[in-house]
Design a protein around this nucleic acid. Sequence first.
DNA 1: GTAGGGTTAG
Length: 583
Amino acid sequence: MSRSSSSSVQSLDMSEENHHNFADYAELRSNMQNLAKSSGITKALQAFRLMRTAAPGKPTIYDYNSLINCCLKSENLCLHDLSALYSEMKTLGLSPNASTFNTFLKGLNLIGESKVALWVIIEMCNHAFTPSFTSLSTLLKKCSDSMELEDAITVLELMMGLNYIPTEPQVILLINRLSKHGMTEKACLVLCKLLDKGYFPSPYIYNPIIWSLCKSDQISIALAIFCSLEKKGFVHNVCSYTALFYGFCKKRLFKEASNCLNKMTTNSRFYPNVRTYTTFIKCLCDNGRIQEALSLLGRMEKRGLDPDIVTYNIILRALSNQNMVHEVFDLFQTIYQKELSPDRYTATALSGLLKKGNLGIARTLLHDIFYGGSDMDIAVYNVYYSLFSGFKSKELSYVIECMIKNDIEPNNISFNTILKGFCKGKSMDEALKYFQSIKKPDLVSFNTILSAACKKGDSKMVQKVIDLMKDEGFKLNVVGFTCLMQYYCNVGKLNDCLDAFECMISQGLRPSMVTINSLMIGLCKNRELEAAYWVFCNLESYGLSSDSRTYKILMRAAKIEGNDLLVEELQRKCRGEGVKPNN
DNA sequence: GTAGGGTTAG
């Protein structure tokens, strides 16, 4: 601050009456600017108003613009003050010029106030000024970056109204964000508007839309967009095709998936790559066709496509779910031989082994990954927690300590996993105590403790949990009903089991195969083989088809009862239909 | 620069 303006500040501070001392307009101007930078808007505004009395025809819009510029650079700026400045300008009868708006925009963009910047842009248009390409383009990026996607769309529309063509990276950013945050429809609209303007989209622009549609089971819309773009002469790439392939696999449209894959092999532009094959491998694994997945892995390597850690993690998970311990071990050897680093997904892929009770080997492998230096997240900790019963373990204390040190927050899956650990222990009271310590128990928490009570045949606890659920406004779902059905069968109350099943159906809940198999076991145990077979034959009415477990249950009962006819019938069906694996 | 992967209850 200059000496003279510093003395002016003092004078200004002393009293209003002294203001006639400021005759010099230039001094007032520089004084005002300094005040705006250092002492905030109120003082600067006082100086601004003083100008009116000090010099006729002042302040001008240029004084105003420079005041805005200084204020925007001040460290303690608040938006309320800015709005006050704008009103002050209008009160003085000044009309904003292009520079006024550009000054606002430059400053607002710098401080990341995209909402206010958009307001300024609209105000600018209302005053018949045209915002520059740069200001709109900067704002578009800012809005997309800060997830103000509706605003980003408004900016894009303004741009297109002015015949400004947004840059490709910015369009990609916006469409990507929209597609990944449940706004795929909006992303489509953006794409359409661009096409209407004669924009030539690369696959990088529309692939996120196709992927998002395929992931949310809207393959027909994805296909429509894909074909329409093709018709218009746009050339897809391997990522576009892989999206469709993924969509077909997900919907179990195997014939279409196979056609899609064949089409891909006809052109080097979209020849299947590691990700395409990985998608296929995942599909095979999800449908219990693990041997085919392994053979595909081999074929892919022969074609010179090296599986990466994602591919291996998918196979590892499938092997682990099937409890194929040796294969899991071998695959780990391969991963290490290829110098790939196991990551958080490798760790969680092992949860199947834990579920099947293979704690020893799972613990060893998990331990190696956990201490191997990769970044872990809550899902890995949650898998780790399933190793422990209750809280009486040094290892568990250490793992919790690690989690806190790494700033990782536990979620309900963590609490429910630990609750299950308590449930494995002897005391239901201790489990209940832990349950009651969970701040926001969810339906899974209730089912965890209900299941434990049911398995232990603890009728008082079963009633207690059901009452608790009622109090807290939770309704039984299919899992809860299935627990109860199993419990009734175990205590020899077949009729109560059937009542529970009917109650579930009457509430519009659809049984799963686990429910059906539980019912089968109950019926067979009570020598109601005919009833069980009837359920088996009418599975379609529930939209279900039997799995390998259903066959085993019936087969075993038929053999015990000496019902050879049924045994033969089941064998025939088993050969004819190709039984689904039980996952 | 677009794409493939995971953790809790029956």
